[in-house]
Design a protein around this nucleic acid. Structure first.
Length: 227
DNA sequence: AATAATACCAACCGCGGCGCG
DNA sequence: ACGCGCCGCGGTTGGTATTAT
């Protein structure tokens, strides 16, 4: 069955997004919500295909995206989940609040796949020596870039800057605020990781974990929200 | 200082799943 | 039951930053 291309490519812009485009997209979604990607660009006045808009939003502009280096705990979790799920990046990302499938996929391809291939998960001491070269990113967040560079037309060079600013998932923020004002994300993450550790297989009953994990997925509820 | 090689990551592409008429 | 269109996923590509020579 032949499929028509998702959108006509004629007159469509490609490549890096400009601050102006980012702003237009964010603004549109803020007002109208996400979805209807096909018609979104037209309505938002963007010369982009819907797919591109969706990707940009999901991987970059979403306010709940947590940017910055993947922590060791997150890394361990990714490795474990990958062992269970394979390249199901969206599922894996679903277990890592604030992380996108694209980000995890990239991280896996550039760091973890090499490391995991040959040996088992490294110890923390190994980790430092094994760790692939890290760029000395200067800590820009893209959202900062967006706000500070809103001189339109200028392309946002989103890459090559690892940022230190953390964007909170609203759910996390809510739970965190339930916990207490200054316990914030760190505590939340600890709690979250504890809950993962409770769920993750201790080698023997992987099946058990797998089924409870799948049930969890089926319920459509992130485990971290429960704890 | 210049150039090449490598690492990293945003964005693109094509396909499959699913819902709807 | 079938075809069509939209959405989402996973693999791949391309451009830039960083490091090595």
């Amino acid at each position: 069955m032949g499929r028509s291309p998702c959108c006509s490519k004629e007159g469509m812009k490609r490549g890096a997004w400009t601050a102006h485009e980012d702003q237009a997209l964010s603004e549109y979604i803020r007002i109208h919500g996400q979805g209807r990607w096909r018609e979104l660009p037209k309505k938002a006045g963007l010369k982009r295909c819907g797919k591109s808009c969706r990707l940009r939003w999901l991987n970059y502009l979403r306010p709940d995206i947590k940017r910055g280096n993947i922590t060791h705990d997150e890394e361990e979790l990714i490795v474990k989940l990958h062992r269970l799920l394979g390249n199901r990046w969206s599922l894996i990302a679903g277990r890592l609040p604030g992380r996108t499938d694209n980000e995890i996929k990239n991280y896996w391809n550039t760091n973890l796949s090499k490391r995991v291939e040959g040996s088992s998960t490294p110890t923390s001491s190994q980790k430092n020596s094994d760790q692939p070269r890290k760029k000395k990113y200067m800590g820009h967040s893209t959202n900062e870039a967006v706000t500070s560079q809103v001189q339109a037309v200028q392309v946002v060079r989103t890459k090559a800057y690892r940022c230190t600013k953390v964007f909170l998932n609203p759910h996390i923020a809510k739970v965190s605020s339930d916990l207490s004002m200054n316990q914030g994300t760190e505590l939340k993450q600890q709690v979250e990781l504890k809950s993962y550790k409770g769920l993750l297989p201790c080698s023997s009953d992987e099946e058990e974990y797998r089924s409870s994990f799948m049930m969890d997925l089926n319920m459509g509820i992130m485990a971290y929200l429960i704890f």
